[in-house]
């Protein structure tokens, strides 16, 4: 199912807050399919961009790991122990992180990315002020901009 990413953000009351490499990345809760431990991951070097795969039923899901500057990592850091499978995107894929929790919409103040910081290739759709901190907001479909395409 394809969902307008900004619509998903605007209509989402809950956000998954994924933490990795010092990054706090918010994804609409409706884009989360399941959480899996990376112990079940099959490392793979032959799939471009992904650090491993996860068997889910009869399907193999590619797993990706990101650096603090949102570049794809070639191997999975030991601290990335949670695989978050994302939906509303085809094919379903997983993003690895160190921690994950949930934030409600009323805990954050969602703001557009300032025009001067505009980058059409960015997976970031908006920013969130959380207390005195700034967090990134993306979605399952927007994050695919980071992945290699045929």
């Amino acid at each position: 199912m394809s969902v307008n990413p900004m619509q998903a953000i605007e209509s989402s009351d809950y956000f998954a807050n994924m933490a990795f490499a010092g990054v706090q990345l918010l994804i609409p809760q409706s884009d989360i399919y399941s959480l899996e431990p990376t112990i079940d991951m099959t490392p793979c070097l032959d799939t471009i961009g992904s650090v491993g795969q996860l068997q889910q039923g009869s399907e193999m899901r590619s797993l990706y790991a990101l650096s603090s500057d949102l570049n794809l990592l070639k191997s999975c850091p030991d601290s990335y122990r949670i695989a978050v499978l994302l939906k509303n995107v085809n094919p379903v894929y997983g993003l690895l992180c160190e921690q994950i929790d949930t934030l409600t919409r009323n805990q954050i103040h969602i703001q557009p990315i300032p025009r001067a910081m505009h980058n059409p290739k960015s997976p970031l759709l908006a920013l969130a002020v959380y207390g005195k901190e700034v967090r990134y907001i993306s979605s399952a479909s927007a994050l695919t901009r980071l992945f290699p395409h045929d």
């Binding site: 603090s68 500057d69 949102l70 990315i113 300032p114 001067a116 910081m117 505009h118 980058n119 290739k121 960015s122 997976p123 970031l124 920013l127 002020v129 005195k132 901190e133 700034v134 990134y136």
Partner: peptide, 15 residues
Amino acid sequence: FSIPTAPPYCQQIFV
């Protein structure tokens, strides 16, 4: 705070 995908001349932001 750094916004990693922003242009190099405007990567930082504050509240």
